[in-house]
Design a protein around this nucleic acid. Structure first.
Length: 411
RNA sequence: CGGAGUGUAGCUCAGUUGGCUAGAGCAUCUGGUUUGGGACCAGAGGGUCGAAGGUUCAAGUCCUUUCACUCCGACCA
């Protein structure tokens, strides 16, 4: 993409109404636009990052046997009354239309997915079933904060699994632990993300959270480096540590952000809707469920918090909006033509290139923009480099640049 | 929802005990000079001072109400 065509612009100054690093950098670099507290729109660069992450998650969910669906955001009040969450869930958005009918704006989708399953799955032969979606969620946070990390509208991958036996559920649940580790590895947060024991299993003793270490985090966890596991402060006590096999002396306190979690739901949602199956003896049983969430928008913010410096964002290759930032300092017609050609050739090779072809913008400004936007590889083409048929290459996370021949780059 | 703070140009902000036609920098537009780390010169456009009401000869400035945003807390992916 030619940067001269990109409608967004970078800003020198951080917005006054944002304190968090993720929001400041994402807004300054033109990835997102703030609409109101806790609500952000995704602009071209931000959407590209979003799609990268979305695709990684989608690949992993499909590999795990998930079937992708897209459920409605409007959800019938009756369903929420059935689970008694119409009144008990404080952060539920309720909207009404001119006829006075009230509906919920989905903060999660158990109330929708369970009735859907009920329409199709009745026999033990129909299970297990695993479905997931990637979709906007609405939660009436009393206080939105930390930029994109805690919004009132945010984007989540939510997966639901349905099983006929505890054994089958546990087998899948354990598999998801590995799938999740793999996802956070792939988005570049593997080394600082820990599976964490937390409260919140409605019936079961613990849920498993995936917590990424950063100072911007709202959670406190205790990390065991050797085991690559952690315990959330909310369940941190001697009894718990002992039962989980942790040694208290080895644990280190860290601030962290919850980027994903997996939950044992047992029959909490299947029972109210009477989602049941007939076994091979003709007996009916309630279906067992698990749910598995990842906050995509939060994940983007977490990457920015964890991977950035004083100049801007440092995207991991796997989620960067582009692979190469081709920065042209050429002004003479012949040189510009060569830069254009290089852009065309790289693009034809299938490389994702942001081409800074802006005229009348000085080198320093282009460099500052490049650092701010944070594309992993910067390639400078200028009269100086062209004099030796070469370009200058520098990785965003390294300080040293090197000159290489254009032929070499195109190999 | 409790506590604290902030709303003035697209953005970041000045604006004194109330006093003339509301300012600066950045951004935008025009012309010129520049061209490897956010350049410079000259000019131009851009405002319901968050909103409503009030006090006053006079309100960006004082009072009341209200809305929005931020931070701390409680709650939460």
């Amino acid at each position: 993409m030619k940067q001269s065509q990109l409608f967004t612009k970078t800003r020198k100054e951080a917005p006054a109404d944002e304190v968090s690093k993720n929001a400041q950098l994402l807004i300054r670099a033109g990835f997102v636009n703030k609409e109101m507290a806790g609500v952000y729109s995704y602009l071209p660069l931000g959407l590209r990052v979003f799609k990268k992450i979305e695709n990684i998650i989608r690949e992993e969910m499909d590999k795990a046997g998930g079937q992708e669906i897209l459920m409605s955001s409007f959800q019938p009040k009756e369903n929420w009354e059935k689970t008694e969450r119409w009144t008990s869930m404080d952060d539920l958005y309720k909207v009404s239309d001119s006829s006075g009918r009230e509906v919920a704006l989905g903060p999660t989708h158990e109330e929708i997915v369970v009735p859907i399953l009920k329409n199709y799955a009745n026999s033990y032969k129909d299970f297990p079933v695993v479905v997931y979606q990637i979709q906007n969620k609405f939660r009436m946070e009393l206080r939105a904060k930390s930029g994109i990390l805690r919004g009132r509208e945010f984007i989540m991958k939510d997966m639901y699994s349905f099983h006929t036996s505890q054994e089958d559920f546990e087998k899948f649940y354990d598999k998801m632990k590995d799938v999740y580790k793999n996802i956070f590895e792939r988005v570049g947060l593997g080394s600082i993300t820990y599976m964490t024991f937390a409260s919140g299993g409605t019936f079961s003793k613990y849920s498993h959270e995936f917590q990424t270490i950063t100072n911007a985090g709202e959670d406190t966890i205790y990390v065991d480096e050797e085991k690559k596991l952690a315990v959330n402060k909310e369940v941190f006590n001697d009894e718990v540590l002992e039962s989980l096999g942790f040694e208290k002396e080895k644990l280190v306190e860290k601030k962290s952000i919850e980027v994903g979690n997996i939950f044992d739901l047992k029959t909490k949602f299947s029972a109210p809707f009477d989602l049941s199956f007939t076994d091979d003896q003709g007996q009916n049983h309630i279906v067992l469920m698990g749910c598995y969430g990842i906050g995509l928008s939060r994940l983007i913010g977490t990457v920015v918090e964890a991977l950035s410096d004083d100049k801007g964002i440092i995207w991991p290759e796997s989620v960067a909006p582009f692979q190469i930032h081709l920065v042209s300092l050429c002004t003479e017609e012949a040189d510009v033509k060569k830069a254009d050609e290089l852009y065309e050739t790289l693009t034809k090779q299938g490389k994702e290139v942001l081409y800074d072809d802006r005229v009348g913008v000085r080198a320093g400004e282009k460099f500052a923009d490049s650092d701010l936007i944070g594309i992993p590889l910067r390639v400078i083409i200028s009269p100086k480099t062209l004099a030796q048929d070469s370009v200058e290459m520098k990785k965003r996370n390294e300080s040293e640049a090197k000159i290489i021949a254009i032929d070499e780059l195109l190999k």
